[in-house]
Each structure stands twice: as structure tokens, then as C-alpha cells.
Amino acid sequence: METRRFTVETAAAGTRLDVFLAEALGGEISRSRVKSLVEAGHARVGGRPASGAKQKLAEGDGVEIVLPAPEDPLPRPEAIPLSIVYEDSALIVVDKPAGLVVHPGAGNPDGTLVNALVAHCGPSLTGIGGVRRPGIVHRIDKDTSGLLVVAKTEAAHRSLSGQFAEHGRDGRLSRGYLAVVWGEPRPLSGIVDAALGRSTANRIKRAVVPEGRSDARHAVTHYRTLACGTAAAEAALVSCRLETGRTHQIRVHMAHLGHPLVGDPLYGAGVRTKAAKLEPAPRAVVEAFSRQALHAAELGFRHPDDDRALNFRSALPPDMTALAAALAIDLPENVTAG
């Protein structure tokens, strides 16, 4: 337990208690968290228990709030190896391998990135919503590899969540992905502006839907072809940048163009015959590739504490490098180095 004490100055007279405390604490915890603490009896005004979060303050009032120690995390810590790209007191950037689920859920109660982060970060997780846990502000699919930033404090969680909510429209956030797709996109670069919603044929899948449909979500992907394979392979390495962040967005948009990701079990079923037409050696590599060929290669954002621009790159992982080689795609140097 920690008790913080403040005195109400003239300028703050007449302010609601929860608003005053949220500002006095410098954004250390959210206003909703402050409100819940006040309502739970953790605040006093003038030496008496606060009457509620909306209590109006008078000049000279002494205000106290007790900050309970963060509760133990619900996901149990697990010593899962992590590839850490950057870490400080506010956040951690990891390079997630394919096959690792980000957050515990139905069917994946443990063995996730969150379990690994709880074990790795330990006491440096200062508590988000009163629980000592990592703050997940964005996710990538289990079988997508690449860069993720995770908050370690409540203030960092709010800042990063705000940046991801803007999807880069305000210039603070940038995300770049690398994908190996079937075929050679024409034109070689372009923009896919097509709303996404749940597929009516398969509830697990997303699909391009009319803008007016009730579940339609605006989705925009910018793509650029970086390298093409031989004519026989009919595959290409594509860079994708997100203007929005919808579930399966790149996978659906590239399939919508007629160029699904190699290995994609949901959206690439229609081009399985392409693999069957390959020579035995590349065919064996493609058929053994058991995930969608998608890698979160670039991530940029502003640091929550001092607004520094942070930018990170992750090299194409070995399995995608081998896949590209099998499909005779001559990889540019900038994708094979982080």
C-alpha cells in the first residue's frame, strides 16, 4: 500500500475528486482506475472518507488516496524464451516467433506471449487496471511472426493504445509487413480500400463486404511488390503497410486481389494447385510451410514518456527466407537484415 497526499490549490477548487486525483497523479493511473479506488473507500478528503468520485473540492482541502499494490497477474508466469528487441521501464518490444499465441484465451490458457512476459518482466510490471500484467495494445496472428510492442505501465498502455487507435493517421505510428504471395500483383503497387466483415460462409474468416453492411469495417492496405520469382514459380515478395488494423486484413486484402499468401490455410485454399505444378524440390518446401507467409518487419511509434520516435526492424525469419529461395525470389538486402 502507498498513500499519496495533496492539497487543493485555488485553481483546483470546485473540481471533482476523481478528476483532481487523476491530474495530481500525473497520469500514473487512469481516471477510471482512480474512480474505482475512490468508490472502494481508498480516498479521504479533509481527513474523512470521500463521499464519492464526484465530490467537489474546496480550496485548502487535504486529499489522500491509498494506492494498493498491484494484484498478482492472472496469467501464470512461464519461462518461455523471448527475442527482446528493446526494453525500458515503460515498454518492451519483442520479435514474436510464428506459432506463439499473444494472449491467453479459449483453447490457449497458457504457453502464450503474455505468460512469457509475466515471467520475464516480473516486478517491473507496475500494474494496469490494478493488476500486475503486460499491457497488450496490438496483436498479430499466432502464425504471423514479427514485432510487437507491449506496455509495462498504465500510462504507457494509454499512450500506446491511443497511437494504435489512430492507425498512423497522426504520423506517430507506422507498421510494415512482408508477405510471400502467389502470383505477381498487377499493378506492382497499389492501395486496397475494401471494407471487411465476418464471412457468411465461415465465421472464423473475414471477407470483403459492402460498406453498408452492419458489420463492415473500413480497411485500407498499401502494398508494393519488392521482388518476383521465376515465371514457373509465380510468386512474389510484397511489402504491406496498414492504414487500418482489422483482423486478418493483409491476408484478406491480398486474397481479394487474387494473390493470397503462400501457406495461408484460410484464404489460400483456392490456389493449392499452384504448389502441385512446382518442381519436386520447391514443391516440398512449399508443402512443408505450415503457416501464412507473413512477417511484421517494421514498427515505429512515439515513446510514451518523452515522445521520442522509436523505429524497429526485424529481418525476414529463416522459414520465410527458405520459402522465398525455393520460389526463386531474389530477396533485397534490406529484408534479410534487421
Rank of each mutant, 00 (worst) to 15 (best):
A11Y: 01
V137R: 00
L82W: 02
H42N: 08
G176A: 11
P185T: 09
D305W: 08
T15Y: 14
R139T: 02
K35C: 07
P123M: 00
L117I: 10
H218Q: 09
P97F: 01
G270C: 07
K142C: 07
D72F: 09
D215V: 01
N334G: 00
A119P: 01
N202Y: 00
E279S: 07
A293E: 05
I204K: 10
A195G: 10
A276C: 02
P318S: 07
P318D: 11
P265G: 02
A276R: 10
A284L: 14
A231R: 11
R224W: 11
P210F: 07
A322M: 13
S145A: 11
G99F: 04
V252N: 02
A43V: 10
L331E: 11
V262N: 08
P304N: 14
A297E: 10
D264H: 00
Q292T: 06
L117K: 04
G146S: 01
T15Q: 15
L310R: 15
A106Y: 14
E28Q: 09
V150S: 08
A297K: 09
E9A: 07
V238Y: 09
H253C: 03
G245K: 01
F6M: 11
E2L: 09
P210R: 13
S32Q: 00
V286I: 04
R48E: 13
V114C: 04
A90S: 15
L331D: 15
P109I: 02
V180I: 08
G122W: 13
R302Q: 14
G338E: 06
V238I: 04
A281Q: 10
A284W: 15
G41I: 05
A219I: 15
Q292D: 00
A315D: 01
W182R: 08
R203H: 07
G245P: 05
S32N: 06
G111Q: 12
V118M: 02
Y223F: 12
A90H: 11
L21H: 10
D306W: 10
D307E: 13
R206L: 14
T247D: 14
P70D: 00
E59F: 03
G146I: 06
T200Q: 04
H253Y: 00
E87Q: 04
L91T: 04
H42Y: 11
T126S: 15
E28M: 03
F312R: 02
V19S: 08
A269F: 03
S174R: 10
T126R: 07
I84W: 06
L113E: 09
G127S: 05
P185A: 08
S189D: 15
G168K: 02
A322K: 01
A12D: 15
E2S: 11
